[in-house]
């Protein structure tokens, strides 16, 4: 069994390393060839305002990566996600999604705490405790029904909550739409994930890559219809994805900032304002 795992795991890692090296090379080539976007002439204030608002000075380079990603998606990820949807029944996919979400709770909790959001941290902790036990290792999301809904969060949002600006839009190889802040966040989230550090045994490597692979399949499967729809209806899909990504992140940041639920239990004597807030909830 162990030998089997080793033979399948090692080539995958090597292959991925090769893909990365190729992407890096392609990226450098793209940067050299495409460069930066030309700002519109200063005598057209509307165009200048739009250029600033879009915040995409590296647009030509980003578009090259968008095309590369789009190509990879068309031949690899999209068919894989379609196959996944075809082969695996809906309830099983939901179970897999729930397990993956549950495995992400340590990172989520760490970010909730760093964001200074005790109620969110409480939700995350309760979700982990309930879903890991009653929900059978996270397969069933019991916690949502018990009043502990899930929320998306990551270190990019933590930085946003600390007031770090998003920076220029980036379209990254493999990872897709991003910006310097969220790209750093992505790296920090991998670093603060306990599963990254469970040791370098073959089993751990296989576990982690299986998890990354399933995560990619799961999220791509969930976006199959919306992405197809956007590609069909948008005149410039790149610009549409850029707009959606930036608005979505801004919306998440706002929701995070506005989430100031009281931490005092309902039965505890409360300040009038808090009591009113609890009543209105």
């Amino acid at each position: 069994m162990n030998a089997d795992l080793r033979t399948t795991a090692v080539p995958t890692v090597v292959l991925l390393a090769r893909v990365w090296r190729f992407m890096l090379f392609a990226g450098l080539l793209a940067v050299v060839m495409a460069g930066c976007a030309t700002p519109p002439p200063a005598d057209d204030p509307d165009a200048v305002a739009e250029f600033k608002q879009t915040n995409d000075p590296l647009e030509p380079t980003n578009r090259v990566f968008y095309d590369i990603n789009n190509g990879l998606d068309t031949v690899i990820l999209r068919p894989a996600a379609q196959g996944y949807r075809f082969v695996v029944p809906g309830p099983v996919r939901t179970g897999i999604h729930n397990v993956l979400t549950n495995l992400n709770t340590p990172v989520q909790l760490s970010n909730d705490v760093m964001q200074g959001k005790p109620r969110r941290a409480g939700d995350t902790t309760m979700r982990f405790l309930i879903n890991t036990t009653v929900g059978v290792a996270g397969i069933f999301d019991v916690a949502t029904g018990w009043g502990y809904p899930n929320h998306d969060t990551d270190f990019g949002l933590t930085l946003a909550n600390w007031g770090v600006p998003e920076g220029p839009f980036l379209f990254l190889p493999v990872l897709g739409p991003s910006n310097p802040r969220d790209a750093v966040g992505f790296g920090v989230d991998i670093a603060q994930d306990p599963f990254t550090w469970v040791g370098n045994s073959t089993a751990a490597t296989v576990f982690n890559w299986t998890r990354y692979g399933l995560n990619a399949l799961d999220s791509r499967e969930r976006y199959l219809d919306p992405v197809d729809q956007i590609k069909k209806t948008a005149l410039d899909p790149y610009a549409t994805f850029r707009s959606l990504y930036r608005q979505h992140r801004q919306g998440d940041t706002k929701a995070l900032r506005d989430d100031n639920r009281a931490t005092i239990p309902v039965w505890f004597p409360q300040a009038p304002a808090d009591a009113a807030a609890v009543r209105n909830r």
């Binding site: 790149y238 850029r242 608005q247 801004q250 919306g251 929701a255």
Partner: peptide, 17 residues
């Protein structure tokens, strides 16, 4: 929808085109 405005997205699509 989820913080993304439909009309703003459409405007940016047309503007880019």
């Amino acid at each position: 929808a989820e913080g993304t405005s439909l009309r703003l997205t459409q405007r940016q699509d047309y503007a880019s085109y």
